[in-house]
Write a protein that binds this DNA or RNA. Structure first.
Lengths: 142, 142
DNA sequence: TCTTGACTTAGAGCTAACTCTAAAGATTAG
DNA sequence: CTAATCTTTAGAGTTAGCTCTAAGTCAAGA
C-alpha cells in the first residue's frame, strides 16, 4: 500500500508543494514513482518525512538534512558521520533550550510588570514594588 | 554617557548593519541622534535591544516586535495589549519547548541506534536489540 | 592638519524556505 | 465516458531577515 503526495503531505502536516520542493532539493531520493510518473509514498517514506520534520523542527537547515540523507544513501561507511550529526544536533537543541529558559524568565518578569501596571492603570510599577526592580536588574544585567 | 552604533551592536551581539536595519524597520524609535546625525544609544536603549533580542530569540517576527514597540510609544492606554502579548508569547514558548522535547526523544533514539550500528559496523540494530524497535514504533507512531 | 576608522544614507543583493502558476497528464466517482 | 479532482514539470514570485556597497560625513590620535 502507498500514498499519493497529497495524502503523504496531510499525514506529516505539510503541503504537496512543500514535498515536491523537498524532492527537488534532493531530500527525498528514496521516494519511488509509479509507471505513470506519480510519486508513491510508502510507510517507510513517511518515517523518513518524520525524521526530516524532527531535524527541521529543531532548526537544522535543509542543506544539512540533505547531507544526512545523502549519508544514509551511501551505506554503512557513513554510520559514524550520522551518529556524530545526531550528537551535535542534541547539543544544539539543549543549548537552545537553555537560551529559551533565560528568555522565558524575562517574559515572566514582563508579565508580572504589566499585570501590576494593568491593575493600577499606569507604569509606576517599581515605585509600588521595588523588589521587581531588583529582579529586572538581575535579569537584564548580562 | 552613550554608545555608538558599533558599541551598542557589540554589547548585544548584533552587527551595526542589523541595528540600522532594525531602525529602518521602525523597531528603534527611541534611539536619539547627536547634532551631527550619529545614533547615540543610552543604557535604556540597550535594555530595549535586549528585550527585542528576547522576543526575536523566542521566534516572534520583527513585525510583531514592532507592534509591541509601537504600543510602548503610545502610552499607558496600551498596557493591556502589551500584557496580553507577553502572555501569548509565554504560551508559544512553552508549546515550542514541548515540541522540542518530543523531537529530542527521537534524536536520542537515533543516537542509541547509531551507537550500536557504529559498534558493529552495520545497521542490523533491531536484530541485535528488538527492544529498540519497540521504542522506535512508540516514538514514530503519531 | 592629516589620516584612519567609524559613522551616515539609500538602495541593491542575498539566502532560506517556501508558495504559486500554467499547462498538461493521471485517477476516480458517477 | 465524462467531469472533477488529483498529480506532473519548469519556473516565477514571495517573505523574512539580514548583508553589503557606494559615496559621502564625522571623530580622534599623531
Amino acid at each position: 500500500m502507498s500514498y499519493s503526495i497529497g495524502e503523504a503531505a496531510k499525514m506529516v502536516g505539510l503541503t504537496a508543494h512543500t514535498l515536491r520542493f523537498y524532492d527537488k532539493e534532493g531530500l527525498l531520493p528514496f521516494v519511488k514513482k509509479t509507471s505513470s510518473g506519480l510519486r508513491a509514498f510508502t510507510e517507510s517514506d513517511i518515517e523518513w518525512l518524520k525524521i526530516i520534520e524532527c531535524l527541521k523542527g529543531t532548526g537544522l537547515p535543509l542543506k544539512q538534512i540533505k547531507q544526512y540523507i545523502d549519508w544514509c544513501m551511501e551505506g554503512d561507511a557513513t554510520i559514524p558521520q550520522r551518529l556524530n550529526m545526531f550528537i551535535e544536533q542534541k547539543k544544539r537543541v539543549e543549548e537552545q533550550k537553555a537560551k529559551w529558559e533565560k528568555h522565558l524568565e524575562k517574559i515572566n518578569f514582563k508579565i508580572k510588570y504589566y499585570e501590576d501596571a494593568a491593575k493600577h492603570g499606569d507604569l509606576n510599577v517599581f515605585e509600588r514594588n521595588p523588589k521587581l526592580l531588583e529582579e529586572k536588574k538581575r535579569l537584564f544585567k548580562d
